[in-house]
Amino acid sequence: MSATTAFLTDSTLCIGCKACEVACKEWNNLGDDGLAWTGFSYDNTAELGHSTWRHVKFVEHPPEIGHGGNSPEVSSWTFSSDVCKHCEEAGCLEACPTGSIVRTEFGGVYVQPDICNGCSYCVVACPFGVVQRNKEDGRAFKCTFCYDRQKAGLTPACAHACPTESIKFGEIEQLRAEAERRLAKLKESGMNDAVLYDPKETSVRGTHAFFLTRGDPRQYNLPLKPEVPTIYTKQGWKSAAIGAGVLAAATMLAFIAGDNR
């Protein structure tokens, strides 16, 4: 059993260079997702998807003279590199009917491209809007956690390319501790709006890709309370049973009550 690994993406160190995004595309041979200018700050790829497995977000607030982005008082322009969260309880993995999505020996959530049949059920089951089907290819894709590289003892391409160690890769518990230390340090320096995003209290039970960001995670489209949707199946089957009961009972009664012409 190999060590469980994880990412700590620290947006307070990120310079928004997008090297991670490009390195991921290069390594995994992904295409571009269209040449559209969005006007969303410097972000023109907008979101994670089947052809973007790392994505750098740019959040702007009006800066103030005398304060750089590292000033604890004002958060003016932050960059945060997003990726599949590799959830402890992964919606996509739970939902996948083919068993294409598996948990690897490194603890990552991996879509096996030779099994996936493109039913797209994982797409609606991911509470973070990560995995997506490639319409041309037919199958679903997302970050592989560089399973191939990890297998070969290499660091994932995105972390390897990051010039500022904004993406840290390592053993999960060590990284969690590191994240806590870093958070404490930021708070100590007065950066009170720093938060560690790792939804452990919800049914997701934590992730293998946690994020240090400034300000409310919702501005980065990180949901406050993500849930693994399959926790609702019990409830669903219960009402399905009721539905079936109603259907059967109604039919039976109708045929009893009705004449048998």
């Binding site: 310079i15 003016s76 322009w77």
Partner: peptide, 12 residues
């Protein structure tokens, strides 16, 4: 205010 300013303590 550039990506460098975003990494700085003081931007003028």
């Amino acid at each position: 205010f550039t990506r460098t300013s975003a990494m700085a303590d003081i931007w003028v």
